[in-house]
Design a protein around this nucleic acid. Structure first.
Lengths: 128, 128, 128, 128
DNA sequence: GTGGTCTAGACCACC
DNA sequence: GTGGTCTAGACCACG
């Protein structure tokens, strides 16, 4: 699991860390119940202030992606994939998705070609 | 065409304006070649400073969604929808989409149910 | 002699008219002593306010490119091409040239390749 | 690196700042990877509002001359001078160059004397 | 009437 | 400390 940060990006670094970890979990690069690196270690690894990593971890905790374990630091939570209930997307992400779909439509995508694109991304993740 | 802004949001107001206009164009609420409201008019309409609206318009110009005419303000550009070439999505939007798909997967979506969600959004736009 | 205006450009229309006429004279499209179209005629031709054309003509007069003739409107002045003295470039244009050369250098041009580019433009004009 | 602004000029201050920095990079006065002054510092230095400097910096970023690093402000980008591919000039600059060449021709320059002028400017930059 | 530019001062997020 | 955002009001160029 390697984090790739872009210090020139306008998205805050702690958000980038959070995003990469979420994508890592989804792709399986980070297994369920796997232990995340210690804040201090990760911070020095990627050359970033500890506060920044801490902020990312707290975000992830708050969103239910990871859990703080007294003994072993942070661990990836078992995702409720098979809960049975209808899956629901965070409202913010829903809005972001609507925006992306608008852009895609104006860029020439049809409903079908866009769905195709999404499926591709979905399947790419499985294999990584 | 009514703009709905959230002044408490952490996404800058000028970005919100830009997003709403993009979605407005995609949904047809803003017709091609339609004249956009004057910067100052829109600014006072939504209770925001002129500079803020200006920034949003410049973003849209730069991205090719609208065009400024010296004589009559800004107009919606005719989108090159049928250019024939493969449609392409902005790299930033691609990354955002990948992130959303990761979140969706962890929230329990399958590739199919997610594609369904996208199609629904796509079609909703047509009707508005 | 056809004027091509870009109403979306950020350079004022009267400047565009002035520039096109200067380039027209240099390329020979407008001959020395040739009569320029009447303000009113040109204005309606290119779909522009008379004031705008007037402003362009006054600029050209002031810079010594054309002359107002009571009887026949404006005519192209005989350029002092063979005056013998060292040619001199307008200070503003000198600065603009320095800036362009800076940009060209950063874009990878060498002194030689840039001179080549200039010669090409110079010669292109002769033929038009 | 000293900026010389003309507050009476009709070219916007932010453009003047942008131009001076571009010329500074080309002349070597600003070294590659050198850190640019902080927006607020430069602004108070040259007696100008922060927003004005900000606008200049954003232009430069957008054009690829400088880069913003989240941690340490803006730095001069390593220019891709030896990329091998044919160097290309911005279309706007090309048009500006054509116009200047037209003016030069009418002022009595020959293709050769103009090329000489350009070489001189090119070489002057190296030494500064 | 339109957009473009600029100012002086403020608040906030990030690192 | 840094940059990003926003405001309220002003002046000017363009058409």
């Amino acid at each position: 699991m390697l984090l790739q940060l872009d210090f020139k990006s306008e998205t805050p670094i702690y958000t980038q860390i959070r995003n990469q970890i979420v994508m890592g979990i989804a792709s399986g690069a980070l297994a369920q119940n796997e232990k995340l690196p210690a804040i201090r270690a990760l911070a020095s690894d990627i050359g970033v202030n500890m506060m920044t990593v801490n902020k990312a971890y707290q975000l992830l905790k708050q969103e239910g992606y990871i859990e703080a374990d007294r003994r072993s630091g942070a661990v990836v939570l078992t995702s409720p994939e098979g809960t049975g209930g209808a899956p629901s997307l965070d409202p913010k992400s829903q809005n972001a998705l609507k925006l992306i779909i608008s852009e895609a439509k104006l860029a020439g995508y049809t409903s079908e070609s866009f769905s195709k694109l999404c499926s591709d991304y979905f399947n790419d993740m499985e294999r990584e």
